[in-house]
């Protein structure tokens, strides 16, 4: 089993890892919100967010390469944004006329900065918080119980299902998968169908096993670790710093 591809490194021990999940969710949520609402040309604000991220990254001892590699998910959309730079007309965006930069370029650089900072903060958040703790924090912050139960099931069975699916892919490749595009699609369709049947039957077995152990429809979710003094000592300065960067270093509340 290849456990931990979802919240890899969340079992390290560092000052950041030991904080309550609620704390981490609040701080990183604030970071993402202030980041996506910052004007694209407020370079000092973005420098502040990046500095905050780098300090957290250093403290958490999560490898930088892990964060960078995962952040590549933004590339396809970024390519589409880059393609559309020339299509912005200079006249349409009057407020950028003073800066002499092409409005398309400004939009692109805003997108690039925002998506990079937010993606890295999400990656870091998932690398310092074990997923079950994350769910208990979400529960504490008011997510409906049903959604939390579903997400904890998803997390529990994800590894199993991915392994099962990889096994099927291996079996298919061993039987000379190839040939025309149409033929491949047909094989893939049948494979996903078989996989569906297997998953469904697994769900039925799981349900029977759970009922025989007294399942009454409620999935127990561990209580969130309460916020202690060190959590407050982390939340207040961090939120203060981020909101400060947003207000004092960037023009305008909304861009």
């Amino acid at each position: 089993m290849k456990h931990g591809f979802l919240d890899k490194y969340s079992d390290l021990s560092s000052p950041l890892h030991s904080l309550s999940a609620t704390t981490k969710v609040i701080v990183f949520l604030v970071l993402i919100i202030v980041c996506v609402t910052t004007a694209p040309t407020a370079y000092f604000s973005f420098a502040g967010y990046l500095a905050f991220l780098m300090v957290c990254l250093a403290v958490s001892r999560v490898p930088v390469i892990h964060v960078l590699r995962r952040s590549l998910v933004v590339v396809p959309f970024l390519a589409m944004a880059a393609l559309s730079i020339p299509f912005f007309s200079r006249a349409a965006e009057g407020r950028n006329a003073i800066t002499a930069a092409h409005p398309g370029l400004i939009v692109f650089q805003g997108i690039a900065l925002k998506s990079f900072v937010s993606v890295c903060s999400l990656i870091l958040l998932s690398a310092i918080t074990p997923f079950p703790h994350f769910l208990s924090a979400l529960r504490k912050l008011g997510t409906p119980r049903l959604l939390i139960s579903l997400m904890s099931f998803t997390y529990r069975y994800l590894f199993l299902m991915v392994e099962e699916f990889e096994r099927m892919v291996r079996a298919r490749d061993a039987r000379c998968y190839g040939g025309g595009w149409l033929w491949q699609t047909k094989v893939v369709g049948r494979m996903v169908g078989t996989f569906f049947v297997r998953s469904y039957e697994r769900a039925e077995r799981v349900y029977h096993a759970m009922t025989s152990r007294g399942f009454d429809g409620r999935v127990p979710v561990e209580d969130a670790q309460p916020m202690r003094l060190k959590d407050h000592l982390f939340v207040l300065p961090s939120v203060g710093f981020l909101v400060g960067c947003r207000i004092f270093l960037a023009p305008g509340w909304l861009f």
């Binding site: 049903l146 139960s149 579903l150 997400m151 904890s152 099931f153 998803t154 529990r156 069975y157 994800l158 199993l160 299902m161 996989f195 569906f196 998953s199 469904y200 697994r202 769900a203 039925e204 799981v206 349900y207 759970m210 429809g217 999935v219």
Partner: peptide
């Protein structure tokens, strides 16, 4: 349905 939907999401 709860385990069922959870497993469907994983599927």
């Amino acid at each position: 349905q709860i385990p069922l939907l959870g497993v469907m999401a994983a599927f």
